[in-house]
Amino acid sequence: MTGPIPTTVIGGFLGAGKTTLVNHLLRHAGGRRITVLVNDFGELAIDQDLIEARDGDTLSLANGCACCSTGGDLALALNRMIEGENPPDHLLIEASGVADPDALADFARADPGLKLSGIVVLMDQGDITALLNDRRIGAQVARQIASADLLLLNKSDRDAPPGLPARLRSLAPRAAFLIVERAVLPTDLVLGDLAPRGRWRADPVLPRRHEDDFVRWAYTSDTPMPRNKLTAALTGLPTGLVRLKGFVALIDDDMVEVQAGWDWREIRPATSYGTDDRTRLVAIGLSPSFDGTSLDRLFSHDC
């Protein structure tokens, strides 16, 4: 028996780019076996070149991922998957265009077989304002946005009306907020643990065309560092930072857990760092302002 399956809910109104994001994540699964449950009555619009086999409502992908329509019965599909022989490394629930992502996330919160990683809500810059102003569906779209841990605004040909970021921010004050193009962004960013809610905040960053624009940085050190050095490093984080997290071993002090985003930093006593008492940090940011060398310099203190 393995642990609960990490679960990410992907929501957003019709045409927001949910399927584009799902395809992107499947294409860049990075060795993860992802299962997508599509809780919608649309067709399974998975890129043809990814599909290896089709069996009824289930598509098998060459990289070990799978995509399955729930036929309107998410509970049944979840039951099958949780009780199945070969649970995936990660579960994506693609909500229907009218679904409340938070209600779907509750399945992951409630079920011992699942663990909620977060709620990603997409919007299309071209129509989100009209949708929010729509008498009939505006409230439902606003509820979707409010449920987000990570809010992705897909750029379109049409310019965003002024004030849109502020309006979205007020609807989802706790969410991280990124502007993207064709839903291109790192898989580990989307599937990573988006909690704790209200901690990961970033201002909108410029759209990127390629996943290559995102830079990953990882750092391990056996040498504990002084606390003031850590504080200084966090203060000097580069502007392209999207997210940083990990554990830092301090001199003459307990291990601490560190989290940071665009405009926030957090240090707190580490509770679950296991038996590894080294400093371990990972971060994602956008080139060129974010680069690994400058981060190495900030955190290394041997010399």
Binding site: A75, L78, N79, E83, D102, A103, D106, F107, R109, A110
Partner: peptide, 28 residues
């Protein structure tokens, strides 16, 4: 943590499970 698991003021679940998400583990 599920919102559908309703709780008493002291944080203990009071036995009411709301909506399908919270009910499903019981069904299974």
């Amino acid at each position: 943590e599920a919102k559908g698991v309703l709780k008493r003021s002291d944080g203990e679940p009071n036995g009411e499970l709301q909506e399908f998400a919270a009910m499903m583990p019981v069904f299974r």
